[in-house]
Design a protein around this nucleic acid. Structure first.
Lengths: 355, 355
DNA sequence: ATTGTAAACCAAAACGTTTTGGTTGTCAAT
DNA sequence: ATTGACAACCAAAACGTTTTGGTTTACAAT
């Protein structure tokens, strides 16, 4: 049926050892034999059985990626872009990518365990970290190589890439403050996520510095989906003293918030400022275009994957811990560059656009 | 280091055969031995080496999924949802999912070949079919099991799930016509995609039946991204006699089109009608909410995967070819249920809203 | 003639399973 | 005492590779 190294040995009259060594260009095989072996291999359509190779080498050349999801509808552009970054880099190194999706919890950890113990993967990439992340605890304790997108509370002794959420959010908040906003609310991520901590801290630092008080009622928590942003924005806008600006913790929630505001007849960018985080392609073509913080997700996936692969190959990665400086992308949803029918209208700074 | 079946054999004083058979509950092993073996296995923390199992069984218990992408930024909510559907179902059957992303072309096919020949997967799931799909040709010829989301031109002798795009688009077009639209344009998918054919045909059928002429200039082609929709909508709106309705071939392009219209000061749902296809979560919370055709992507992924798994297990799937009847989701972007500041305003049917 | 060296090759073990085709021992029926 | 049936067990082969530790041959140097 399928052609094996044994068939080539029979065909060429050599031993399987010699065939194997010829194919791997060892120098205890004569050039003429190498040529012969390679030609018959090609002729017979030989491709090595990876399972056998891997069993022998005791390496799978596969890396694991388990995407944490909430609920069945899982339409997060964030993850598909990250996946592409990781996957393409892995492919470039000749590695495969084993992907599954699991809601955080018991089963998720079991999935990690199963893949490790069944020796299905050589290492893992962990994404969307929690403050105390059981996945990382497990991998660390089990001695499995891994690299992470994000950080955790406690010791950061593992390789990671992260974006400086404090700095990013600080830029957003300072920008809004400079535009004259005083009543600034935010829709935070679920608090168990580590980046919730950073993003919230960035906002708080900026507000404190500007001597604005931080009202607890102004801090809602959303589930990172558009629907979550929509719901929480409605809560905020129903407040007796509604905010003039809403900082959403990601683009998806910002879009939901925009939708909520627009449904009330508010013009986003004029009557209310709304900002996001991630700069997914959705942000650019929202109406109005969303002011947000750029996060090079594809590239982050790529770098995290590279780190892991370097480690797996026994090399030290160029950098073991990377913290990216974010850049604020000012578009129109914040009120700067506010445009009416395509014409850009400048709004004077330091003046409340909506009081 | 890691504990194997041999260690258990040594520990229990049995042969490896007996240990293996005990663990698999064969009935030529006494109950007491089974108990002993299982207990020591658990005690020693044994988990089978999947590589070895697979090599022996000549099955990988892995299915392949190669996502076709265009360009590096690959933030399509469609795929992440599909992925979740496939992945969760596979996991339920104890199968793994090997994922990669490749742009259509030479390399893509090479990736299929490599995974097949290296015996890395037992079968494939193919998504986003092309009219003449080389992936399907290859898999068919190579005798590799596969299941498909979508159809192709030519013989449909393989298992697939698809949504009836003709019917879906026909519903959309008829709805718009009923709302009084006469100048209906569309932004079609790239023509090499099979569903372009169906969706376009649906529109054309409806227009022909209503005795509306089909202007070639009214048929733009977009790349399925938001940006593509944005660009093509601008082209259409720049026409001397611009359309009063734009049918986009998917939600992402519809959102881009909405953004283009809104930038020109048009009120979507009043001055112009725009519709999508897919009903991604984005559609519901767009502003205005997008009228679109629902496609249960998660479920489709799940069903396609189930089909493949049934085949892999040597069973005949319940249904080998499924064509889903789509449902039109009427929201506001089409002009029906047009709302101003949250209040819904009915628009009389059979009357042009914008001439 | 012996020794040394290098080139070319290969048998067998190993990786960790499952499966095939047994063997051994016990007990009941003849 | 034989035979048959059954329960319980196991050695060895197989899956397709790579690697270890050789052997053989030829030829040059002593």
């Amino acid at each position: 049926m399928t052609v094996t190294i044994k068939d080539i040995a029979r065909e060429t009259g050599k031993s399987i050892t010699t065939v194997s060594r010829a194919l791997h260009d060892y120098d205890d095989v004569s050039d003429s034999t190498k040529k012969l072996v390679r030609e018959t291999a090609a002729e017979m359509g030989y491709t090595p059985n990876l399972l056998a190779q891997r069993l022998q080498k005791q390496r799978t050349e596969t890396i694991g990626l388990i995407l944490p999801t909430f609920g069945p509808r899982f339409a997060d552009p964030f993850f598909s872009e990250f996946l592409a970054g990781v996957g393409n880099t892995a492919a470039r190194y000749g590695y495969d990518l084993l992907v599954s999706t699991k809601a955080p919890g018991k089963e998720e950890l079991a999935a990690y365990r199963q893949k490790v113990q069944g020796r299905q993967v050589d290492g893992f990439i962990v994404v969307r970290t929690r403050r105390h992340d059981p996945r990382i605890d497990y991998l660390r304790q089990a001695g499995v190589p891994f690299a992470v997108f994000g950080r955790v509370e406690g010791e950061l002794d593992f390789p990671f890439v992260d974006e400086d959420g404090v700095d990013g959010m600080r830029q957003v908040a300072e920008h809004l403050i400079a535009l004259g906003h005083r009543r600034i609310a935010c829709i935070a991520p679920p608090p168990e996520l580590m980046f919730a901590e950073y993003r919230l801290r960035g906002v708080k630092e900026a507000l404190t510095e500007a001597e604005l008080m931080i009202d607890e009622g102004y801090c809602a928590t959303g589930d990172l989906t558009q629907h979550g942003g929509y719901k929480q924005a409605n809560v905020l806008l129903d407040l007796p003293d509604p905010p003039s600006a809403i900082i959403a913790a990601n683009d998806l929630m910002a879009l939901g918030a925009m939708s909520a505001a627009q449904q009330r007849g508010l013009v986003v960018g004029r009557d209310i400022a709304i900002t996001g985080f991630d700069d997914t392609p959705l942000a650019e073509h929202a109406h109005p275009p969303l002011t947000t913080v750029h996060q090079p997700i594809y590239q982050i996936g790529s770098v995290v994957c590279e780190m892991l692969l370097e480690i797996l190959q026994g090399r030290e990665p160029d950098q073991r811990q990377v913290l990216l400086k974010p850049t604020l992308i000012v578009r129109q949803s914040c009120g700067a560059n506010h445009s009416v029918n395509g014409a850009t209208v400048s709004i004077p700074k330091k003046e409340a656009p909506y009081t």
